[in-house]
């Protein structure tokens, strides 16, 4: 279990961070996911851990969005919100060093591309974003992704296709 969690924790954090845009909350979600997996599914077959882990994470992210939506509604109702509270001005630009790149120009291009990618991913509709990350990055097939997202396989295909089209359109300046 330790090895499994060590292998997925960073990628899970990136998925959570891309989904919610908050560093600390993303860490909390990953920790909650780890605890739930150990508590409930440690006795299961090892091959089941990955889909179960991502299913828990997916549900945690969805719950976070719901809670956040309700919180924002309350704030709006109480007139305590400002435009910055709504997340419209949230800038998820990463501050990620890349020591492998030595050419400053290349580094700037890569950083810009990464920033654009993160922004594009962050602004995708939740289900499109999850379908894309689970299918394209984590390598789950359509059936596994459908189980993780608790939806039909056809729905996964649709979300995935729309996500790719949206991302390509937004990132055409970097990756035509």
């Amino acid at each position: 279990m330790d090895q499994f969690l060590a292998g997925v924790e960073r990628r899970a954090f990136r998925i959570a961070h891309l989904a919610i845009g908050d560093h600390d909350d993303a860490l909390d979600l990953v920790q909650d996911t780890m605890i739930k997996l150990v508590e409930r599914y440690a006795r299961r077959e090892e091959s089941e851990w990955a889909p179960l882990f991502y299913r828990i994470l997916h549900n945690r992210i969805r719950d976070w969005h719901r809670r956040n939506w309700i919180r924002r509604r309350w704030r709006a109702w109480l007139s305590l919100n400002s435009s910055s509270d709504l997340g419209d001005s949230h800038d998820p630009l990463p501050e990620i060093p890349d020591p492998a790149v030595s050419d400053p120009g290349d580094k700037v291009d890569r950083t810009r591309a990464m920033a654009a990618l993160e922004t594009a991913l962050h602004h995708l509709p939740f289900r499109q974003q999850q379908a894309f990350l689970l299918r394209a990055w984590e390598g789950f097939d359509v059936a596994q992704t459908a189980k993780i997202m608790e939806c039909s396989e056809g729905s996964v295909k649709t979300h995935y296709s729309r996500a790719i089209h949206a991302l390509r359109a937004q990132l055409k300046d970097y990756w035509p």
């Binding site: 969690l5 924790e9 860490l27 920790q31 780890m34």
Partner: peptide, 9 residues
């Protein structure tokens, strides 16, 4: 993340 993993375990 490592600390979170150790606590989860």
């Amino acid at each position: 993340l490592q600390r979170a993993r150790q606590e989860a375990l």
